[in-house]
């Protein structure tokens, strides 16, 4: 009974893990660069939503229409100013330098957020925030359910874009073999730019949903980068719905551990899962090798 209720909450938070992971997976899959500041970008998206609500009472779900594009633009700027200089480097240089840039951004955004919004924990509390859908004896918070649904819709839209659109196909081709993509006349540099900006926008939308359904503070970045990373390893690269499913698996695993081991072990279970997957199935649950 408690377990079932926890599992419901696990699925709900899992969708957001999946959305956060999809963005990380996109930039990693296409640029071969691990953006460790992904969680900070998510945090910024959360504060954007929070600001729009606190200052002008914008509905948090509607303000995603502004926060997503704003983070997309931020992604363009970050790629243009920083990441474009490392993506063409050889593997070792690329990995080292992109980590340095990422950690640098982490510090900058963290300090910036403390400056702008103080270190307090914030949440967007709308007048429908407490609404609950009663299903038998179980309670489903409506805002979290809506967030899950929205996360799914965003991923489905992205899936359609990558599958059918001209530039979407170009992104997939570049992820698979950038040299062959260049031979098709695809401007690989612009594909990297687009993929990075899309990844940033996904982080922003995820952050907006986190600020409505849960809470944000300047220090949540690392935690979300870690969750996203666990899900990417869990699901494997290359499948958006794999990320979504992987997120839900992580949410369920955490929920189970809360019931049987207690709250403090919640963060540990993800890391254990992370190590176990790396040992047993390094290509991820839904990923293919190579």
């Amino acid at each position: 009974m408690i377990l079932a209720q926890q599992l419901i909450l696990g699925v709900l938070v899992g969708g957001l893990y999946g959305l956060a992971a999809a963005g990380l997976s996109l930039t990693f899959g296409v640029l071969r660069v691990l953006n460790v500041a992904h969680g900070e970008l998510l945090m910024l998206g959360g504060y954007g939503t929070f600001w729009l609500f606190a200052l002008w009472q914008f509905d948090p779900f509607l303000s995603l229409l502004g926060v997503g594009p704003a983070l997309f633009v931020l992604g363009l700027v970050l790629y243009w100013a920083l990441f474009q200089f490392v993506v063409r480097a050889h593997e070792e240089t690329r990995i080292k330098n992109s980590l340095l840039i990422g950690f640098g951004l982490t510090l900058v955004f963290h300090s910036l957020a403390i400056r702008l919004w103080t270190a307090d924990e914030r949440a967007v509390t709308t007048d429908y925030a407490g609404a609950v859908l009663k299903v038998g004896i179980f309670a489903v918070p409506i805002v979290r359910l809506a967030s899950l649904a929205l996360a799914f819709v965003v991923l489905a839209a992205l899936h359609l874009f990558l599958g059918k659109a001209r530039w979407g196909r170009a992104i997939r081709a570049t992820a698979e073999d950038w040299e062959a993509a260049a031979l098709m006349g695809i401007p690989v540099g612009r594909v990297y730019l687009l993929a990075f900006a899309l990844g940033t926008a996904l982080a922003g939308v995820a952050g907006g949903l986190v600020s409505v359904s849960y809470s944000i503070s300047p220090s949540i970045g690392l935690e979300w980068t870690l969750k996203a990373l666990i899900v990417v390893v869990l699901a494997g690269l290359g499948s958006l719905f794999g990320s979504f499913a992987g997120g839900i698996v992580l949410g369920l695993a955490e929920a189970t551990s809360v019931v049987f081991l207690g709250g403090p072990y919640r963060e540990v279970v993800g890391l254990v899962l992370f190590l176990a997957i790396l040992l047993v199935r390094p290509q991820g649950l839904f990923g293919s090798r190579g």
């Binding site: 196909r169 997939r172 081709a173 698979e176 073999d177 040299e179 062959a180 031979l183 290359g238 293919s288």
Partner: peptide, 11 residues
């Protein structure tokens, strides 16, 4: 047409 064909195998 490159050596080894270099198709997008997963597409």
């Amino acid at each position: 047409v490159p050596e080894g064909r270099r198709l997008f195998a997963r597409m």
